[in-house]
Design a protein around this nucleic acid. Structure first.
Lengths: 199, 199, 199, 199
DNA sequence: CCCTAAACGAGACGGTACGTCGTGTCTTACG
DNA sequence: CGTAAGACACGACGTACCGTCTCGTTTAGGG
């Protein structure tokens, strides 16, 4: 039987990994995302293409990895830190902190990743597991507490509430462009809250 | 001035055009959208690649054209026909008619187009002009009437209301997958309406 | 029966013809012969491609026509004018007059035409009929007189004598490059004559 | 310095190389030389076009390589083997052996290559370096010995003597067609010798 | 002198090949 | 064995010309 050549993560060279992720991010921001390619990343990182294919299945996965690594702590810390007793304030803080603070200027990368994910189911799954899912869980948690507090109507499904909130953000990002500023994020929270509050 | 070689639409061969659009749609649904290529469309339509490049700037533009052409009447008729006095009923009908009726099974094509548009500004513009913009205008019109009727709060910006409604649909399509059925579209309208109604 | 659409030379537009030939020559000398194309000639002459195809079968034929037209009188006059009683002098004059005088700087065009003719039998035939054949006849005539005069050995086939003379010229043009100057043309005649003279 | 991507000959795959050359020759003889294309060779050899472009600059270079490889030993052995004391016999043997024996049926390939070389200076150089030059050197060597022996006049430049001989062959091949048989090659040598011998 | 058939400009069209790029697999040589 | 380097088969890219084919629009010549 063939040994199936599963690479051994223990022997992975961390410097090489870092060089690849760095190169991916640098090319994404410099040359424009459309020109990101495995070949380009390999050349820029001074790395064999083989090495990239050994550890990542696609260019999207590399970019996601590079982008998410810089994001993770940032993003989840901000989402977790909104723990006052005022749901409206917390929601505004979460939306602003996540969308403008943590993601901020890298919004085009997110858009590119989601675009790529429409052609690549594996990337889509990775994206959900890595970014979308955790974010939803953290926000859902806060919404559940708001339901307990009576600040959100009891018949609201937290995940549908998230659709209502994040839908606005992604819709503007991906479909109907417009400014992404504090006025917008506040308005997103306000508009959603009008529908979430108990009547 | 440079000759610029702008082709003359009057000399365009309608049979050729039809063959190309048909081939594009057929390949999109048969072989999977990832495999759509100018080369493939040309071969399938029995057409020179040059002829495609003469009239469309990219494969995305061809698919958009083919897809939108079949959609247009359908979609806009459904959006226009919701003219009862009950905004809730009309909204549900619009969302259901557009998302499930007109778009229906071709939702993956829409997702693919928006994905493609994230890499291609021209396609993004075309998509907005051809699909997103007109849809928004038609819905905005109905919302304005609902404001006049007092069924929607006077301080609501119709376009932000559309973000609230369509955001949910596109978010589920592009970001966080889930069923697209009548229960969902009704819920989309319900949830949005909770926030839009006068208090 | 189909009318076969043989074009009527009487209705041929002489200005158009002139414009095409002029454009062909101009492009040949300016842009380099490798870039000569029917499309290019048509554009430059402000003429439809159809018009070129109506009167010439290939780009080689156009260039040959253009080139030969300027050459003909020149070339044949020079070949005919060598009618002294001194065959050696006449031969040198013929070779020099034809190769350096009439053809002169357009030698690359001739090389290109012969190159093209290796791929295109029609052009090869045209070239022989238009240039090679007549030249050979004129020279053969003078050689026959030299045989009568006793300046060339009686067992010499005039056409083989021409092979001996012109072979050197074309060999240098097409195969083994070297200078084309008066020293060379004289040497060509000298060397050939050594073999042609009666022993 | 620029990386310049010079391919490393040590890593060249000999099987691939052989497949390409074989395909080139096969297509040249089967489909006719006019139809030889990089695309066709690649398809026939089961090889990527990139691989051809990596090692050869043009289709002409591929055909030359394929053709010359089969020719080389053959041709030069024949030219070298004419080492009797009779220059006339040796010359006839060289001309016949090279032109009818070694080249033989592949004469159209040679004509096509020289035709191609009229449009492609790189190919012309390669052709001279690979075929014309070495041939000339070998023949010049024998002529020099003939001068030493007194069988060729002392004032004869060996290279001009070669022009005289080979000129006839190439002239017939490229310019004024005629049979290529033993009568012809003998006549070529005879006619040339009349001019080369001491008076 | 008009009428009609052609030659003409323009360029769309189906093709073939071009030369380049990126993909994902592979082989080689090194540490 | 992981790695840098890059050759390789493949498929698509976007471009250039090919030769054929409509389109109107001149432009003659024969009725």
């Amino acid at each position: 039987m063939s040994p199936s050549h599963t690479p051994d993560p223990a022997r992975r060279n961390p410097q090489t990994t870092a060089a690849i992720l760095e190169a991916a991010l640098a090319m994404a921001s410099e040359s424009g995302l459309a020109k990101v390619s495995i070949e380009g990343i390999a050349a820029r990182a001074g790395v064999g293409k083989r090495t990239i294919y050994r550890w990542w299945p696609s260019r999207g996965a590399v970019v996601l990895d590079a982008w998410a690594q810089r994001l993770d702590d940032h993003l989840y810390k901000r989402l977790r830190s909104a723990q006052s007793d005022d749901f409206e304030a917390d929601l505004k803080q979460m939306v602003k902190g996540a969308w403008l603070g943590a993601i901020g200027d890298t919004r085009p990368v997110l858009a590119w990743l989601i675009g790529e994910a429409q052609h690549d189911p594996n990337l889509a799954a990775e994206l959900r597991e890595r970014l979308i899912g955790p974010t939803r869980e953290l926000v859902a948690e806060r919404i559940r507490r708001a339901k307990d507090d009576g600040q959100v109507a009891p018949d609201i499904d937290p995940y549908r509430a998230i659709d209502l909130i994040y839908g606005q953000l992604y819709y503007r990002l991906l479909v109907a462009p417009g400014p992404h500023d504090e006025a917008f994020t506040d308005s997103v929270a306000d508009l959603a809250l009008r529908g979430l509050r108990p009547r």
